[in-house]
Design a protein around this nucleic acid. Sequence first.
DNA 1: TAGCACAGAACAAATGATTGTGCCAAACGT
DNA 2: ACGTTTGGCACAATCATTTGTTCTGTGCTA
Lengths: 331, 331
Amino acid sequence: MSIKRIQQITGFSYSTISRVLNGKAQEFRISDKTRQAIFKAAESLNYRPNILARSLRLKRTYTIGLIVPDIKNPFFGELASRIEKLLREQGYSTILCNTNEIPENEEFYLKVLVDRQVDGIIIAPIHTKEWDAMEHIRRERSIVLIDRIFYETDIPWVTSANEQAADEVTSELIAIGYPRIAYLGGTAETYINTMRFSGYRKALERHSLSVDERIVFFEGYSPEAGEEMMATLLEREPDTRAVFCVNNLVFIGAMKVVQKHEIETGRSIMMAAFDIDRYCEIFKRPLLCARQDQEKLAANAVALLIEGIRNTVGPDRHLIVPVCVGRHRIR
Amino acid sequence: MSIKRIQQITGFSYSTISRVLNGKAQEFRISDKTRQAIFKAAESLNYRPNILARSLRLKRTYTIGLIVPDIKNPFFGELASRIEKLLREQGYSTILCNTNEIPENEEFYLKVLVDRQVDGIIIAPIHTKEWDAMEHIRRERSIVLIDRIFYETDIPWVTSANEQAADEVTSELIAIGYPRIAYLGGTAETYINTMRFSGYRKALERHSLSVDERIVFFEGYSPEAGEEMMATLLEREPDTRAVFCVNNLVFIGAMKVVQKHEIETGRSIMMAAFDIDRYCEIFKRPLLCARQDQEKLAANAVALLIEGIRNTVGPDRHLIVPVCVGRHRIR
DNA sequence: TAGCACAGAACAAATGATTGTGCCAAACGT
DNA sequence: ACGTTTGGCACAATCATTTGTTCTGTGCTA
């Protein structure tokens, strides 16, 4: 009832007020006197437009949905932080949807976001289960896949050079004297795991080594999964010397077991993982780390999303961001 | 135009359709035949109510705003994850607002959330700067402070027993032989830092020790702040034996410096901090940790918020959740 | 002086729901 | 037979905007 109040005070009609308040005074040749009066009234009433009514009329909510599998994971925390910031700068609010790696939640959230008429969706999907739903959504609104993608889809996406980075990490491990490398992976059939494992395998094969399934695990992306995989690994193969963890959380879980094992046996294990740069310098041990470029991931995802919203999609709707592979040792 | 389609198909009026679809058929004595017909039409059209229109009319958006200072921090990541889950279970969507510890962002977000007519706000405020704004918001909608609070306000809040936990940690450090404990704190004038430092001081005083300002720092809550404080500390007081970090991020930053220092000097430093339980077991060193009960924090915040929304506020609008203090050593 | 251009602003439809009130017939009671 | 209840539903207002169309005066020209 707020524009109505201005109407009552100034006596001008809704349309005139609306136009003035939206900066269209010039365009609709509204006199300066009128403009001033309306601005004054709006100011004195502390007028704030009703976003719901506006969105209803305009069919644009300036809201976007961000679906991530695990916001507790600092990787997604930082990604969310960057995306939310970029979107805010463009005038959008972000609805946070945390699926917890549960497909049903993903399905649910996609429906909720459509119901809420978000202008766009950025999603790091769990796997391909909701592909159809997303293709369907894509017809009516902007949607961008991030991090975890469907390689074959036409939906815009941005991800890291996972395969190549995993290959590099593995090659480096081999080069520094670890031909037998255990792989602690995420859930099978999931994009990230598939690509990183593929890189791992390719590196081995290039060095005429083959994948030993006894030291390969696909249990999940959580610390608990990491702990379990590492425990099983060391039980079966106590003389393991090198381990490649699919992500930071698996690494954390694995490290619990590793530390204990190293103390008990006196033998040290070489660890490598994705996105553990935050932890690298707090360990008194060498580590091998593949560091995703979150800034580029976020920036490109948001750019693609906005392009989709504005219907100005460029030719490059699929982006692969380079990953930085590095070795670390204190000092 | 969706309910209109159902109208066209079934011939029933808007009111009847709306009532049936909202499960008020009984209440308004609508015949079973009518009900079935409307349901069938809705189903076949794949009808989804327009949430904007509904919210506009009902003045309820089923949306809540969550304002946190740093979603990259796994502590807030987990808190957000829990809160978002609980709210989802109650039918609410969560708008994520990450202030990045910047007061201007907090001010901005509070306005945005009010403009968006959220039903409620859960906020871990930066400090008391926006207190007035929140008191103002409180008149019209539900708002709950979490983690960082204003002790004196009537606004509902839930936080941890920070002072007591810091006291316990400090006492324990003294008890195990560290009378001289450095304090690496967050931003001065901020609730968390004030309470934890107060606990630290009280413990010292109880043991007839006094605060030595040369080993007390209030630089911030980030890893960078932790690194800087620790570096300065060790430069000035190289024989420091025990350090209490105000939070997990400061701990991470400090550890970088500590590890290097320990290698160089051969002397070990006893570390204590809040919310480092995730890291405890991945270090081959004893640690002292105060672990906040995120489950209770989140559950109580959401409960208070819902009470506020439903106007069923109970007597206990201010809750202090116990903190678990524990010592850790591998094995 | 009729006709026209144009500045300036009002009118009213449309967005998609919810809800208080009103209407009509059938059933019911006495 | 007449008044009252009740079942079953429609009408129309309302929520706060935006926007295409229309209206009303000027001042100017032919």
